[in-house]
Design a binder for these strands. Structure first.
Lengths: 170, 170
DNA sequence: GCCAAAGTGGGAAAAAGTGGGCAATTTTTC
DNA sequence: GAAAAATTGCCCACTTTTTCCCACTTTGGC
């Protein structure tokens, strides 16, 4: 069931990079726990379904990265030149609030109140998985998101999708 | 019977790209299941008739892509640099709650309530297949759509295709 | 009309998801 | 530093959803 068919080389070690997909409705219980949907666990596969890093997203949402993915991203960030103020600001902002989480015996993760607050999450969330990561949105925020077409969408679409149909010049 | 006569090269692997056509009337049962019409299954052919990806369309409808088709598109999208906000917006707007679905033993797919709600689908739907994808419309929405269109159809045609055959003045 | 294929509906088992009690641990407070 | 309070994790029981399977109805060709 696992879709980890992409490999990537991190410091000489080959690692499975998952290709995730799906939209899941989840609930946060009174203790701040959220069950990881079985669909996602299955997609992640044996090795990667247990440990995650959760962090504030750039938008008003939380990001959940499989640990492997987080390692890759943070190694990218760590290569920034820290003698540059802009870089330091970014790195600080990037790491603030990030924490490791693991599934408990009932496949739930515990999400800290600070993070929930940041994303404006009460009880109901939508998990939206794409590429190698999972976004966690407050239900109502997500609905809104779906509605609004980003500026320049059709331009970007032409750029990106033009290539799909074998138009290299696009 | 299969109509998969187009081949395309994805990362060195040849893949059949279906050429679909047809309008089908279908029903969604109380459990949210929809039977894939035999006509479509036949067009898709052995390999591709089982796994699909379904998401919200850009209009008020749902889109069903054979998995191969989706993979081809999403592999381009997944290469975007996600530190760029424009790209993130694009990816989100593009995925639109995409999820995998597979036919059950009676050739039905299960469509999530959230997606049905988005498209305003109750019980009766129209599947409209073209190119390599299938649109799923609520019956009444679809009627409305084709009633509205004839008015400016010819204008539209001129807009879209008017200059295809070397009519620079068009 | 009759048969085969297509399409529909629903019961029941299995799996997924939820909530809460309790005990162990950590943090806070005095 | 000890007691109180809050947090965390494990476990169990319950509810809901999904899946699987079977049987029935409808359609269309001959």
């Amino acid at each position: 069931m696992s879709k980890c068919n992409t490999f990537e080389c991190i410091k000489g070690v080959k690692v499975n990079i998952p290709q995730l997909l799906g939209e899941y409705e989840c609930k946060i219980d009174a203790k701040g726990r959220m069950r990881m949907p079985t669909g996602l666990i299955a997609q992640l596969g044996e090795g990667q379904a247990h440990n995650f890093v959760i962090n504030r997203g750039f938008e008003k949402c939380l990001m959940i990265y499989p640990e492997v993915v987080w390692d890759r991203i943070s190694s990218e960030v760590n290569q920034l030149n820290l003698y540059n103020k802009k870089n330091r600001d970014f790195v600080r902002y990037f790491y603030r609030g990030a924490q490791k989480v693991a599934l408990d015996s009932a496949d739930r993760i515990l999400v800290s109140k600070r993070l929930l607050e940041y994303a404006g999450i009460q009880n109901d969330v939508i998990l939206s998985a794409y590429s190698d990561r999972i976004e966690m949105w407050a239900n109502d925020q997500y609905e809104q998101l779906i509605e609004e077409e980003p500026m320049d969408f059709s331009d970007l679409a032409e750029d990106v999708l033009g290539r799909v149909n074998g138009n290299p010049e696009a």
